[in-house]
Design a protein around this nucleic acid. Structure first.
Lengths: 402, 402
DNA sequence: TTCTATTTGTTGCCTGTGCCAACATAAACC
DNA sequence: GGTTTATGTTGGCACAGGCAACAAATAGAA
């Protein structure tokens, strides 16, 4: 169960807890269980939390009063004993997730129950200004509001940026895709919409989603790597906690250096993973011009020309070096590969694994797995929703909606 | 305040808390404050924890009854108002820390108040067997027991290994210095001594010590790098938590790859930080044969021959690449350099900083500092003590002594 | 010295949280 | 229909921390 740490009180000391914190903490724990499982029986909650039946009853009652969950008759379980009441997450709580891209911005409503209730793509000028994206978001949310069933509640807006984001103040340090530099986008959007806004790096959000609801489920130490047209991004989960670093810039895994080379990456750094394992190179060698992900993937897996095969092998070797470095640093349980890194792994999993193992220290290399990801196009929406629901789950009693 | 997570329930879900957990948690928080500050007034505890005066009074009373702390008249503070009672950590609680090396093993008694009460070095055969080290430890503890003041209490033994340690079961995966492979040293020693034993990597322990009591104090995201005769080790603290990875092998920062090279490190990996930034190379270029740390340091800082200067600069460049990779991955606030990496930094801090900045992403490179470490030869003793006191601090009421 | 202001320790009472035990309820099984 | 099993419900209880009033110990001013 991967967590985001709430508004980190930087360097602050641990405080004591009083009875109120106890209650809030338990409410939060329960709500988190219900959220992660979507629906769970009261008796499962008792055994999972170790709390008393009567306490669970009381706590769930409060969550029902807060209209965050609802109780329903249990489905037929064919088990001895009185059937337990089922607790489900409310179906009218949504978050808005926003993904701005070159010339369009996608705005979605994601329910707390995991469903994407509505998705709208709004065209913008190429390299839109922050204001133009704000416009698109405002317009999109207007449309979404009219589409959602009456009685809906919004918790806020999560924005996934393909670039470096200072999560302390929700501002974009650099986003090459949008050509933004030092844009306090969170504040801008928040002022416009008058509801909470969270901004984060897309790699971190994808990692969060995949580790809680995808291929990383059940692991506590995870490395996630994504290869796309814009380069290689990623995220790291350590001890069930997303690694953000001091300002949120952590996880720039595409820019780790692995060898001497003249090739540079999107930031101009030479010899990095992103510089050496490059989508355009592959597409070119495979005779494709700006291919869709699926087409590139198929082409990689069915490559036959010596040139293409050699290049693919070279990329696999480079990726193997990078994975070894990451394994040495983190000792993860699993590495999740996504985007065009996925077909690279599938093209020759043995080669990738052995390269990684050859360059990793004994202890760490032994039990690490490589896996492909499970969540498809919804990944950013799921990750964004997780970000946006974090506050609500940490403090159910203080929930505010818009 | 850097923490070790207690006996991590791997992948286990969060449990609910009851009133008893509340009490234990507050006791633990208080004891941690007293431990970290060695001595602190009750009124400071009130403001730090946010708990009520009367509650603090009650909790401290319990800690006094448990004989974990003692109260004393406050020193003259020359402040208005009734002077607050001072709470000090008990001076009779010790941990044993053990550092096995090539041909000797150091055994120390470290007080909970931070003092090294006793230190004994016992010679062993070169590359001692686990049993021989156990013998040395047993003998050392015997001597230490006779030296300590009557009424002492031991919490257990912390062992610092210069190699890979599986912290889940306290066994040594590989230690090249001792030529150990897969030695369940924790169990062996525990059976012999009949008291709790914790084993950990020396880099992690040093990182822990330096981040809580040394140059990393006050930072939440720290990278620690140590250069010694055996190679380069390190540790990472993220969000006030030591990064251990799934089994405890994380933090092998010497083995991250940075460029193409035929040079190999102590594990036979080519092109890694440890392969390229090598103590022997430096010593040789400076005309020294197996120098002491201080002599090497002085020689580096006063190098004049073109060959030595060139080599030093080359090492600095390589270190800069490695730091950039680490900065990109972690977005730390501070990097702590120790051992012979310290004089490298001091020899040309500008060069190291700029190399690192050139190869790091914009956001992360901007606010990161490089510092030298503060704790000297006592670092492993302090780190080991911290490891050994973790359980006691997490559960003051269940304290057991030996 | 004496008085005031200020801060902290102490005490008794209160609130409310989770636990517990007894009972009620709803299913499966015989 | 009775028994067994598991869960929901209820009222009372234990106890942790908050609170307010009072006591105590200091600095500073008169």
């Amino acid at each position: 169960m991967v967590k985001l740490n709430s508004p980190a009180p930087g360097g602050m000391q641990a405080r004591g807890s009083n009875r109120d914190d106890l209650r809030q903490g338990n409410l939060s724990t329960l709500l988190e269980y219900v959220y992660k499982n979507n629906s769970i029986s009261r008796s499962d909650l008792t055994s999972a939390t170790g709390l008393n039946r009567s306490t669970i009853s009381d706590l769930v009652g409060e969550l029902v009063e807060l209209k965050l969950v609802s109780e329903s008759e249990s489905p037929q379980l064919r088990r001895v004993g009185r059937p337990s009441v089922n607790v489900s997450i409310a179906d009218n709580i949504f978050t808005i997730t926003v993904a701005p891209r070159h010339h369009s911005t996608t705005i979605s409503a994601v329910g707390m129950n995991g469903t994407v209730a509505s998705r709208i793509r709004i065209a913008t000028p190429i390299h839109p200004s922050p204001e133009q994206v704000c416009d698109a978001v405002e317009q999109g949310i207007g449309q979404i509001r009219s589409q959602l069933k009456k009685g809906y509640k919004l918790v806020g807006v999560a924005v996934a940026i393909s670039g470096q984001v200072d999560v302390r103040n929700n501002s974009v340090r650099i986003c090459s895709m949008l050509k933004w530099v030092d844009v306090p986008f969170g504040s801008l959007l928040q002022e416009r919409l008058r509801m909470p806004v969270w901004v984060d790096n897309d790699g971190s959000l994808a990692c969060l989603a995949e580790s809680s609801f995808g291929a990383g489920r059940g692991f506590s130490d995870i490395i996630y790597l994504f290869g796309g047209a814009g380069g290689i991004g990623g995220g790291v989960v350590i001890d069930n906690q997303l690694v953000r670093g001091s300002r949120g810039y952590a996880g720039e895994l595409g820019h780790i250096r692995i060898m001497d080379s003249r090739s540079v990456d999107s930031l101009g750094l030479a010899g990095t993973l992103e510089a050496l394992v490059n989508r355009d190179d592959l597409a070119h060698a495979l005779g494709l011009d700006d291919p869709e992900d699926d087409d590139l993937s198929r082409a990689i897996l069915s490559a036959t020309t010596p040139r293409a095969v050699r290049l693919i092998e070279k990329k696999i070797q480079a990726l193997g070096y990078a994975l070894a470095t990451l394994v040495n640093i983190f000792n993860p349980q699993v590495i999740l590969l996504s985007g065009f890194l996925q077909p690279l792994y599938q093209a020759n999993d043995y080669s990738l694994l052995s390269k990684m193992r050859q360059n990793a220290v004994a202890g760490s290399r032994e039990h690490v797995q490589i896996r492909t990801t499970e969540l498809g196009g919804r990944i950013l929406e799921i990750g964004g929703a997780q970000l946006a629901f974090t506050d609500l789950i940490a403090n159910p009693a203080q929930a505010k909606f818009y």
